[in-house]
């Protein structure tokens, strides 16, 4: 069953410049993504490709000057602001990127128990903390007393205590050492196996690869490829978008070579054409204009004209 389906999602910000002139800038452009129950989909992409915005758009916590268009379906139902408000914290859970999302003046145990509006029992909390390797005295500590890794685990337990059906984790492994990162990803895998849909936003491809069902690659505010995890193996020839291939070869455990040519400044942000066209070796005139159609290939899909 598809828990979350995103169709043609665009997010834009209105900004003022020269005092009174207003301009809207698109940050996400025609993004497509879907997650099924029991699935763990990893979302990877360059920094600034709009990964966090995607999470915030689904949760309905975009900043005030942002607007969005497109369709988001939660279990086939259109995700409206009212529905988002009703569901978030209960069926929709977010593990935020920054540890500053914790209330600095509240003991973490209390925060976790009160998450999502309801109050949960101490025993429930204790068993959850034990599962994440947090000792019972941590419950009475304040966020400033915890290390970065501990705060991260507190955040993860906040999101998972409520039995959410859709969990969006935004960079849950950054700042954790390899074993802890792996353990965290394994927790999300367990949650997926228990029937939740998990969207794992990360740039650490290597730690999520063994546990993910599918990988969605974001670039320049749009999703350019969704591929099963096993496509990311060998020399990456199974990947169909040139950006995904470049990302794979640039990993330290592979070639560790950046694509040749200009330094990567920023992807083209205009709505028209492929955002990677400036760096792509086989870019043609057709890549510059219009919306690049989504092409379904046996497993997953790709947004590239040249893909076979």
């Amino acid at each position: 069953m598809t828990v979350l389906e995103i169709r043609n999602l665009s997010v834009f910000f209105s900004r003022y410049y020269n005092w009174f002139r207003k301009r809207t800038e698109a940050c996400l452009n025609g993004l497509e993504l879907s997650v099924g129950a029991g699935q763990l989909v990893a979302v990877i992409g360059s920094s600034g490709s709009g990964k966090s915005l995607l999470a915030h758009a689904v949760m309905g916590i975009l900043p005030r000057n942002a607007g969005w268009s497109g369709q988001m379906l939660y279990k086939g139902e259109l995700l409206t602001p009212q529905l988002q408000q009703r569901l978030r914290g209960r069926e929709l859970a977010l593990v935020p990127q920054s540890v500053s999302y914790l209330n600095p003046l509240m003991q973490v145990g209390k925060q976790v128990r009160m998450s999502g509006g309801g109050v949960r029992s101490r025993t429930e909390l204790r068993s959850m903390f034990r599962r994440y390797g947090l000792e019972s005295q941590v419950e009475r500590m304040y966020p400033f007393q915890l290390s970065g890794g501990m705060m991260r685990r507190v955040l993860v337990s906040t999101a998972t205590l409520g039995g959410a059906e859709l969990i969006i984790a935004d960079e849950p492994t950054s700042g954790l050492h390899a074993e802890l990162a792996q353990e965290t990803v394994m927790r999300f895998r367990e949650l997926a196996d228990e029937g939740s849909a998990v969207l794992l936003i990360t740039h650490d491809l290597e730690s999520v690869l063994p546990y993910a069902d599918a990988i969605a690659v974001l670039y320049g505010g749009t999703s350019i490829e969704v591929a099963p995890a096993h496509y990311f193996s060998g020399d990456g020839t199974m990947l169909r978008h040139p950006y995904s291939r470049a990302l794979w070869t640039a990993l330290p455990r592979n070639e560790f070579t950046p694509p040749k040519g200009k330094p990567l400044v920023r992807p083209a942000r205009s709505a028209a054409g492929c955002p990677y066209r400036e760096y792509c070796e086989s870019a043609s005139e057709a890549c510059r204009s219009g919306q690049i159609p989504v092409r379904r290939v046996n497993e997953g899909w790709v947004r590239c004209i040249d893909a076979t």
């Binding site: 992409g45 360059s46 920094s47 950054s174 740039h203 990993l251 070579t257």
Partner: peptide, 12 residues
Amino acid sequence: SMLDAITQAQIW
């Protein structure tokens, strides 16, 4: 650690 693989390779 906060960069994607391509930028990381480039900077290094």
